[in-house]
Design a protein around this nucleic acid. Sequence first.
DNA 1: GTGCGCCGACTGGTCTGACCAGTGGACTAG
DNA 2: CTAGTCCACTGGTCAGACCAGTCGGCGCAC
Lengths: 252, 252
Amino acid sequence: MTKSPRFQPVQPVRAYQRIVEQIEDALARGDLTPGQRLPSERELVAQFAVSRSTVREALRVLESNGVVRSRPGDPNGPEILPFSSSALRKQVARLARVDELSLSELLGFRMIMDGAAIQVASRLRTPEQLDELEATLVAMRDAIDVDFDAFSEADLAFHELIARISRNSLIQTCNDVVRGVVLGLISDKIAHAPNSRALMLESLHHHAEVVDAIRAGNGHAAARLARQNMFDYYAGYVPDSEQETLRALIED
Amino acid sequence: MTKSPRFQPVQPVRAYQRIVEQIEDALARGDLTPGQRLPSERELVAQFAVSRSTVREALRVLESNGVVRSRPGDPNGPEILPFSSSALRKQVARLARVDELSLSELLGFRMIMDGAAIQVASRLRTPEQLDELEATLVAMRDAIDVDFDAFSEADLAFHELIARISRNSLIQTCNDVVRGVVLGLISDKIAHAPNSRALMLESLHHHAEVVDAIRAGNGHAAARLARQNMFDYYAGYVPDSEQETLRALIED
DNA sequence: GTGCGCCGACTGGTCTGACCAGTGGACTAG
DNA sequence: CTAGTCCACTGGTCAGACCAGTCGGCGCAC
């Protein structure tokens, strides 16, 4: 018996889709690189031999995917953007909004993710990177006296450094995306917490412990501390019923 | 000194963007749910008091984000789609194509991710779920005699079950996305490997070992085996120079 | 009464052509 | 050489048109 031919569902290919494909392909091949400009809409009309509506629909798709940006009046035409995680973040945020994704799931993911990254980082880190980590701790301590946003930023720098040390930009992107979504959900609550200063101090303390464990080369301990830190920091915003699930993630 | 007011960059809000926002908000509020239909374009023109081009640009954006689907001739109007990870996968695939993301990074991410998921799963799994895992092993064994696609599908079922056991749909989505991208990059090469049957048998053996470790409640061992499996299975497609980085991830 | 095929109202996809506010480079006056 | 003006051209939006395709209902044949 021969294998059945596996037909594909037939769906008409819209003209604007083929334009999107062509531009994305050119980008993948390197014929188009970030910073370059696309021809003006009217010029694209001529090149693709379609109407302006069609070209514009293609541009809207590309724009919503973070590939290009059009600015009215700019004689240089639409700009090819460098990749950013904002489009990814938008997708995940949508996923979260439709409520198929709860805050506790996001946090659980971050605990797992960040723990794994720290474990890897504690093996791969160089002495110089250890110094860098110490420096971010100092920055966090200084930021406490400024305001919560500053502290949040310093905390972000710490986690980005960890992701970089683990030599995997996907981890970095992933952290970035999920962190952004989480903060989007609860940043307002955090900023108005009455004891925010105490929280920040405790968080700083935890981070210092993590760095100590990394210095000692104890990846397990570092990861565990990181998860504990994340839990302590955010658990208050999670319904009691779901806290247990998260707490179970702390131990490995 | 008072805090500086943190101005936002001012950028004109396009009409089609406000339409997108309104529809996405309605979706977030639950006024619109998957399966429902949007009014026809001409009806939307009337409701939003804009031209059809504008409505269509908004629909194209929503469509490219996987929110709706328009079919020509459908008297019911555009359909609200349930969330799927395909839009996410598209974004990550684009990220990979721009070559800021190498195969080795994708695999490294999967090794970390899958290892972490298995470690969590080995703590949370119920006896019934253990039985389910055994069942997927049987399915994989049977699939070897069919063809590579069948085996790949059975393997996918295994990893999806792991993700489900770890009780975090984000892990599931993440695995799904990255796995899809990786396979998109090398599935053709794998399918034509001369010794594909031997590879599949070895992979099956490794999976069985993982399940054994999960049964024994040894999360570390299970995770390590999983990473080893992933490495053995895919390392051949990674440049030699990058294999070392991946090999370093196997041990925890 | 029931099943079938036809038809038309309507859909989305595309095109044409138009107007406007705004941009930025070239050109000019000092 | 600078500062200011100006205009060609940009993207954003609109109105109106045509086409191929779809679906639901009507009427016909059985």
